[in-house]
């Protein structure tokens, strides 16, 4: 099945210059991707960045206007049928028949793949057990919770073990514990050898799950690397300082800014300051100065920059995935 070249290069997905336009709008403006087999690869970007369009092209749902791509060694333009044999896609909205039961959905898809009804039912039951949905197997999907739907949706993508699993925003709209559950599933899938390409607008999700992250914005890839590499790209760490007395915050911020020469961010609660701090000696001097000047610190620590900060550094716009913090800040400024 996989051709010789890709066996050698060990790539599950290889894309060159993919472009897709919708009327005047260019959703994807020339993206290259190399995704190694067995890895979790995250496409990270704000709403409207072109993530879904990119995924749909690779999953043969949308044809590119320019560029080429192979998935598991098969060209998406010339051999979409072969691509479909080796992929599965879980869309942004649970792609299930809500009127049918969970089990019936799985049996239907298994039969569409070509399994005889006995085998199809057996596979459906296996998946239901593996995804802890046995208890709800005979309930209509419309009565499922968000997390159950997602699990069933992913189960539906595993009737035939795919070479590549596409997940479009797998945890959007899930509560934190359901989100944890989906993350655990994705890690286990990757561990079992399935290549996972997921899109997300949550920096934390990419950070937690992905072996590699491509950051895209306005249809272009603006950065790619491991989470660590992306953070290193900003070239420095971040100093976080918490003050006992929030009344001193302005004075402390001025002092830090003077020592470290960069803009100091105030936490929404107003008791913590964060500042980019590349130089260990200067950082040490800044903290010492704070203490000798008589500021009472409840905590100080160095951290790698968060992906939020990385995203900010890369795109120059605030991260769209943290609306709460941003709007709070905006409100505070207004």
């Amino acid at each position: 099945m996989p051709n010789v070249e890709n066996e050698r290069t060990n790539l599950a997905i290889q894309a060159r210059g993919l472009v897709r336009r919708y009327g005047d709008m260019t959703a994807v403006a020339g993206i290259d991707l190399d995704v190694r087999r067995g890895m979790i690869f995250a496409v990270l970007g704000p709403n409207g960045a072109g993530k879904t369009t990119l995924l749909r092209m690779l999953a043969t749902l949308t044809s590119p206007d320019a560029g080429t791509a192979t998935v598991m060694g098969h060209d998406i333009a010339t051999a979409p049928e072969k691509v479909r044999f080796s992929i599965a896609m879980t869309g942004q909205f649970a792609s299930l028949d809500e009127d049918l039961t969970g089990r019936e959905n799985l049996v239907m898809l298994a039969r569409l793949w070509g399994f005889r009804s006995g085998t199809a039912r057996a596979r459906a039951d296996e998946l239901l057990i593996a995804f802890e949905l046995s208890a709800a197997a005979r309930k209509q999907v419309k009565d499922y919770s968000g997390g159950m739907r997602r699990r069933l949706d992913i189960a539906a993508s595993l009737i035939v073990t795919p070479g590549v699993l596409f997940l479009d925003e797998p945890t959007t709209g899930l509560d934190p514990s359901a989100r944890q559950g989906v993350w655990r599933l994705i890690r286990q899938l990757a561990a079992s050898g399935v290549t996972v390409l997921l899109t997300t607008q949550y920096l934390e999700e990419a950070d937690q799950l992905a072996d590699r992250i491509a950051v895209i914005d306005h249809g272009r890839k603006i950065a790619e690397g491991t989470s660590r590499e992306l953070k290193a790209a900003t070239g420095s760490g971040v100093l976080h300082v918490s003050l006992a007395d929030s009344g001193q915050i302005e004075a402390a911020a001025d002092l830090l800014s003077a020592h470290l020469g960069s803009v100091v961010q105030r936490s929404p609660e107003g008791a913590e300051l964060s500042v980019l701090a590349g130089d260990a000696a200067a950082t040490n001097a800044a903290v010492t100065a704070l203490i000798t000047e008589g500021f009472a610190l409840t905590d100080f620590r160095m951290g790698a920059p968060s992906l939020d900060e990385v995203f900010f550094a890369l795109t120059g716009t605030p991260d769209a995935s943290a609306p709460d913090a941003e709007t709070e800040k905006a409100k505070a400024l207004a």
Partner: peptide
Amino acid sequence: DLTADASASPRTASAPETGTPGIAALRR
């Protein structure tokens, strides 16, 4: 600390990864 926002780090409270042996055991 990868995320500045502490409230967005529920992983500290999550169950160990051994929760669902089912997926790992799933037949290819």
